[in-house]
């Protein structure tokens, strides 16, 4: 049976991971490759790297890092952040990334999704959607959500479910859905929104934002119908360790990969 996936997300700036990541036995906590290897050993099913490098000059650093990650880890990984052109995508995939995620760029020009899916295949095109509650979009007694871009700072006037459907129909291979309302609050994922998106599209949905306890993962996989769940700081700071989380979820009837 297909397993639900647990995905740690690492922010990378100038080739190094940010946030005070505190992993046991790491010589250098900022070394993204060493951290990726550790997560891979501890049962992460996939990894996501977001490049938050501010300058264009340092983009090359990220590509070098992607090559090094591909050299060292034997599980799939997605890279995102700052992708502007098809050539950016080609360079990252050639460096060994399995998937790329696009967000603002796809909202600005939706046909980017078609172009990337056609050239590289849907399986490597992840459409990231940052969502915020907007009562103006409430309909039929259901909460309305709006798509935000530029790291959740800029509203777009686009409703989330319709955008997810459009991304799917244009050839996205996966949706990475982040609730900006829930992100960092540790009060649980946006379960209702995740379920609605998951039911609206025929591709896997990765839920992100809000994980605080192991029960939150159970909720998003069962009620939320998520195919994968992504989190950052709770893993980095050992608030939840992946091996224990996977045992817990398996005990609650959720299919988990065992190593």
């Amino acid at each position: 049976m297909l397993a639900k996936r647990i995905i740690p997300c690492l922010d990378v700036r100038d080739g190094r991971t940010v946030k005070g990541i505190n992993f046991i036995n790491l010589r250098d906590a900022g070394d993204a490759v060493e951290l990726a290897e550790a997560y891979s050993r501890y049962g992460a099913d996939e990894l996501t790297f977001l490049d938050i490098t501010a300058t264009v000059e340092n983009r090359g650093t990220f590509r070098t890092l992607v090559r090094s990650i591909a050299d060292h880890i034997g599980i799939p990984f997605t890279v995102g952040g700052g992708i502007r052109t098809e050539d950016d995508v080609a360079a990252l995939l050639d460096s060994g990334a399995d998937k790329i995620s696009i967000n603002s760029q796809a909202v600005a020009k939706a046909s980017v999704i078609d172009d990337l899916a056609l050239r590289f295949g849907s399986q490597c095109v992840v459409c990231a959607i940052d969502a915020r509650r907007n009562p103006a979009f409430d309909k039929d007694g259901q909460d309305g959500w709006e798509v935000y871009v530029h790291g959740g700072r800029k509203s777009t006037g686009i409703e989330v479910i319709s955008w997810a459907k459009e991304a799917y129909s244009r050839g996205a291979g996966e949706i990475l859905l982040t609730s900006m309302e829930h992100d960092g609050v540790k009060q649980g994922f946006a379960v209702d929104l995740t379920r609605r998106v998951s039911e609206a599209v025929g591709i896997p949905v990765i839920a992100s934002g809000g994980a605080g306890t192991m029960e939150h993962f159970t909720e998003v996989f069962t009620e939320g119908k998520a195919d994968a769940a992504l989190a950052a700081s709770i893993f980095h700071f050992h608030e939840i360790d992946i091996p224990e989380l996977k045992i817990f979820l398996a005990q609650h009837g959720i299919t988990m990969r065992k190593q």
Binding site: M1, L2, A3, K4, R5, D45, S122, Q123, G173, E174, G202, I203, P204, D227, A228, R257
Partner: peptide
């Protein structure tokens, strides 16, 4: 059936 996503993507036995 509709509840099964395509592609079959992820870890399976």
């Amino acid at each position: 059936p509709k509840e099964y996503k395509i592609p079959h993507m992820g870890w399976n036995t």
